[in-house]
Computed example of a mutant assay.
Amino acid sequence: MSLDLSNYELLWPVSLFMSEGERVLRSTGSWQDRATWLMAEALAGTTAVADFEDLPNHTAPASDPWAATTTGWGTKQALMDQRDWFTELIARASELRHAAAPRPYWPQRRDYWLSHDGSTARDARRDFARIIGEFTDNGYLAEAFGEECVDDHTELRDPSEMIDRRLGIPHLWPLAPETWDEDTFYGLIEVFHDLVSRPRMRRFHSYSGCGWHHSEFHNGPARVLYRWKINQLLRDAGIEYELAAEGEDLGRLVAVTDDARSALMHQALTDSAPDITIRVRHAVALFRGRDTTVESKRSAIVTLAGILEERRALLKDKLGKDEGALFEIANRYDLRHRKADQRGDYDEAFLDWIFWWYLGTVELTNRLIASRTAG
């Protein structure tokens, strides 16, 4: 019996749902509790959890081939148990529809057409506060801030003080998005990236209506989910920054690039030798930071040029005399040596072009080295 996925909608990235689901299946003990909690978080509504809980814990015994099924009595068909069902759900996660927000209603459409006062930025701040509220409700800040319990009278950490220590701005908790300027908003986005941690288990404490308590925290999946949600928010608001998913500036806001250049950056960061990776990460962080300057872009180019200088023999072997053109720009223009006779009257866009050219060449030399080693 194949699983019908038509009633389920995914709220998470597919890869994250699959990796956390596979981990649940590898776990021992209360794996059903972990599975239920994962579905409650990652799938819209309660339908999937209800379907899962309706199934038996184990497959119908082989001695009872005529067990009752959804098709009625007398059908020779083994019942699917919870593990079979959940295993198939995770394996076929890529077939799940992503939950979509409903189309705007009348008041929202009116605001969209009539508002020209910068309300998009304010809406983004409110939406960010809502997302943090959801993370809080699901226990993602319990490891950082602590969690109240009627049986535990330990004094909890003060979230406002914790944020103040990181940002240097007091009284930011509870969140009040209407009071934030741009720097505060972007700073909070980066701070909460470092604070969230996913609880893989929860238990309900019924005494005096205490509620859910969370445990088995891990910041890896929490940060993946956080970046996915926040980057989607920033895109929808037309804000041209995103949280970096890798590199020296992991979890920091960086300028958005197109898919091709993002792929190039990923390749250069992941395929380099360890000593080169450190330098590439540094160059990328200098170049794409939200607060990047002309000087930081120059420094990024100089870092990449140093890598290529070390590989000059390889480039000469593959390109012949043409390899000199790579270094002529860095040497003749006001980039590396900064001599009086060097050219400095060029547009900043030139720095972008040379950075991507050099980064592409670093990635090319990585592949050349890999092919030579394989051969």
Rank of each mutant, 00 (worst) to 15 (best):
W12H: 04
S27E: 05
R34F: 01
T59P: 09
A68I: 00
G74L: 06
T75R: 02
Q82F: 02
Q82R: 10
D84M: 09
I90E: 01
R92N: 07
E95V: 06
L96E: 04
A100Q: 13
W106A: 09
W106D: 02
L114S: 09
S115A: 11
A121E: 13
R126P: 08
R126C: 15
G133L: 03
N138I: 00
F145E: 00
E148D: 05
D158C: 11
E161W: 04
R166Q: 13
I169N: 06
P174E: 01
P177D: 00
E178M: 12
E182W: 02
D183I: 08
G187I: 12
R203S: 06
R203E: 04
S215F: 07
R223Q: 10
W228D: 15
W228Q: 07
N231K: 11
A237T: 03
I239E: 00
E246T: 15
L250H: 11
L253K: 02
S272D: 02
A273N: 03
P274F: 00
I276F: 04
V280L: 00
E295R: 05
K297S: 15
I301A: 08
G306E: 01
I307M: 00
A313S: 06
L314S: 08
E323S: 13
A325H: 11
D341M: 07
Y346K: 05
D347H: 13
L351T: 10
L351I: 10
D352C: 08
W357V: 12
V362Q: 00
E363S: 05
